[in-house]
């Protein structure tokens, strides 16, 4: 393939990465925004979403679409309830002390990951996509006969990948509506701005925290259910999304929701494009160092407001 079609392919693959990343990072960002805690176990909630999707799809055994839709409902609900339970049992008891929360969620990370290893096993397992037709993409050239469209060999995307992008956009839009247009969102934003004052006005802050923690985990699980027909479910799959979500949330400004989406698109796209043309390890090293530098010199994030 020539450079142009190759770049287009990389961009499309990058868009799929960006869509999933936006969902996962948004979960982390919502939790940080409202509760001011960093959840290190976030990647494991993502992994759990994928594993539950596999369990649901293989138990139902019906048409792949039935299993997939069921997983898309069941996995986020289960993962969200588990996270809310962890919030009540662990985080609430240490009163969300920022440093102890990180230590406790590191513990939670190992508990979830190793329990999955004991039950689900060390193998990677696939989930069948509900539909998966290949769509060939055209490219243009200026030949002897002037401008012409043609279909280069290998330049194609599956309908499922397009669906993933669309689904992520729909979910994020729904989240935005929830946060800005509903009573629940109003309560969450009130708790975010001043939890003591919210408590004084009769908002059950403890319950809001548990729900927000569950919502954050459920968003990660949704991202995982969407990706699992493309990547297989595996007990160690939570590491990369965790690191990338951290990067996105930091670049976008901790707790800033629009910043998170913009950063996810930026990082997801460039990750896709860079890893096509450069060594992925080198790209990761540079990205990690760059993010550390952002935190050192601009702790409010590139697009965040000051004094985050």
């Amino acid at each position: 393939m020539e450079f142009g079609p190759h770049l287009m392919l990389a961009t499309l693959e990058g868009a799929v990465t960006a869509a999933i990343l936006a969902l996962t990072a948004m979960g982390l960002s919502v939790v940080f925004g409202v509760m001011r805690v960093v959840n290190v176990a976030h990647g494991e909630f993502y992994m759990l979403g994928a594993v539950i999707a596999w369990f649901v799809a293989s138990t139902l055994g019906a048409h792949p679409a039935v299993g997939f839709v069921a997983a898309l409902v069941i996995a986020p609900l289960l993962v969200g309830s588990l996270a809310a339970l962890a919030d009540v049992l662990i985080l609430q008891r240490i009163s969300y002390d920022p440093e102890r929360t990180i230590v406790a969620t590191i513990g939670l990370l190992y508990i979830i990951q190793q329990t999955t290893l004991m039950t689900f096993g060390p193998d990677a397992r696939p989930v069948e996509a509900p539909f998966n037709s290949r769509i060939a993409l055209p490219w243009f050239e200026f030949g002897d006969g002037g401008f012409a469209l043609y279909w280069p060999w290998g330049l194609s995307i599956t309908s499922y990948k397009l669906f993933v992008i669309a689904a992520a956009v729909v979910i994020l839009a729904a989240l935005w509506l929830l946060m800005t247009r509903t009573k629940a969102g109003l309560v969450m934003r009130a708790t975010q701005q001043d939890s003591a004052m919210a408590q004084a006005f009769g908002i059950p802050v403890a319950r809001v925290y548990a729900l927000v923690f569950g919502l954050g985990a459920a968003l990660a699980a949704m991202g995982a259910v969407l990706i699992v027909p493309i990547q297989q479910a595996h007990y160690l799959m939570g590491g990369d999304p965790l690191l990338l979500s951290f990067i996105v949330v930091i670049i976008g400004g901790l707790g800033s929701l629009p910043g998170t989406v913009i950063a996810a698109v930026l990082i997801g796209m460039s990750d896709g494009i860079i890893s096509v043309f450069f060594s992925p390890t080198l790209a990761k090293i540079l990205a990690t160092l760059a993010v550390a530098m952002v935190l050192v010199f601009r702790p409010q994030g590139l697009m965040g407001k000051s004094a985050a």
Binding site: V38, E99, I250, S279, K284, I285, T288, L289, L295, F297
Partner: peptide, 27 residues
């Protein structure tokens, strides 16, 4: 570099530097 941050920022920055170090060993 890392001591310019504090608290949670310090934890994440040290984590990131160590991750970069780990990847460098692999590279």
């Amino acid at each position: 570099l890392a001591l310019r941050t504090r608290g949670v920022g310090f934890m994440i920055v040290t984590l990131m530097f160590a991750q970069a170090g780990y990847l460098t060993v692999l590279y």
